[in-house]
């Protein structure tokens, strides 16, 4: 659903912005979009790091069942999204621990959720536009209550990630040592899935069930190409998500294609650009390294400890 050009773009960004800001639905869209981008950027780093993209994808489809179920009960779809996503995330996190097993469990949950969602839209006699908005996002339809709920969920997600940040990083890259160091690897897996469930539920409002990766995977994947430090990757991921959402909203307001289309196009373009940039940077860096030590990836005097601990952290 689109708001076809109410006003036209004057290219005077200040007056354009003021024009947009005059509409309550645009303010709601920007506020919710901003919160969702921050959440998506932060959570996305760990989704990419832990290779749980499939789980995020499945959770968004579970959200479809939740949203459709809520529409059937004439409740705000956001509540259905939150209930279904968090419930399914806890089940996925608790049952599937090994990767193979996890994928199977996720697949089963995904299948059942889609079946349930189909049943709900079959029973639902309302407007089919409501179903479309769950599938492809309806950011211009966000009301003030949704913004408040999104903000609360966003604060919870970012705080939780902050509290479990270091052990989650440890459990994600080095689970065996983390377990030996008494990091509760299993509990963290369930907690993280629940966080993904929350992030998915609020993101669906903006980009919809089918385009969830635009905010949950693409910004983190772009950041991963450009940064090698976890904290900077997370910052770049958030900035990228914000840029995609804000520019997408601006374009969606002034031009007829839907916001979700602009956000996904920007995310895709950003990813392609990031690949090109990282490839070029990688080539630029590789030249002196090869010249200095041909054929060997070991330092020349590998056994003796390095004389001075000069290292950029």
């Amino acid at each position: 659903m689109t708001i076809a050009a109410i006003d036209s773009l004057s290219w005077n960004l200040v007056s354009d912005f003021n024009q947009m800001w005059a509409y309550a639905f645009m303010r709601n869209a920007f506020e919710a979009g901003t919160v969702v981008s921050i959440v998506g950027g932060v959570v996305g780093y760990f989704v990419v790091l832990r290779r749980t993209a499939f789980a995020a994808h499945a959770l968004s489809h579970v959200g479809f069942a939740g949203g459709a179920g809520a529409a059937l009960l004439v409740v705000d779809p956001l509540w259905g999204l939150l209930a279904f996503c968090v419930g399914a995330a806890a089940v996925m996190g608790a049952i599937g621990q090994r990767l193979r097993e996890r994928d199977v469990v996720i697949g089963i949950v995904l299948m059942f959720a889609l079946g349930l969602g189909y049943l709900f839209i079959n029973l639902y006699s309302g407007n089919s536009a409501d179903v479309y908005s769950i599938l492809f996002g309806q950011i211009f339809g966000i009301d003030t209550e949704d913004v408040v709920v999104t903000l609360v969920v966003g604060v919870i997600v970012v705080t939780l990630i902050g509290v479990i940040y270091r052990p989650l990083l440890f459990a994600s890259v080095d689970p065996e040592v983390a377990e030996a160091r008494r990091v509760p690897v299993r509990v963290l897996a369930i907690a993280f899935m629940t966080i993904v469930g929350l992030a998915v539920a609020v993101s669906v409002q903006v980009v919809g069930v089918l385009l969830i990766f635009a905010l949950l995977i693409a910004p983190a994947a772009i950041a991963e190409r450009l940064c090698s430090r976890p904290s900077s990757a997370m910052v770049v991921s958030v900035v990228t998500a914000l840029a995609c959402t804000w520019i997408g909203l601006l374009l969606g307001f002034y031009f007829s294609p839907p916001v979700s289309f602009f956000i996904t196009s920007l995310a895709t373009g950003g990813y392609v650009l990031a690949r090109v940039v990282s490839y070029a940077l990688g080539r630029a860096r590789a030249v002196p390294a090869v010249a200095g030590d041909p054929g060997s990836r070991w330092p020349t005097r590998s056994l003796s400890p390095d004389p001075a601990g000069t290292i950029q952290l």
Binding site: L49, G162, V163, L169, V173, E224, R229, A233, L313
Partner: peptide, 21 residues
């Protein structure tokens, strides 16, 4: 392509088990 450096791994040995900011 994982955004994770050698020194980040070493740092986990120091405080990776600690919760909180």
């Amino acid at each position: 392509e994982t955004a994770f450096r050698g020194v980040d791994l070493v740092r986990l040995g120091l405080d990776g088990h600690r919760f909180g900011f």
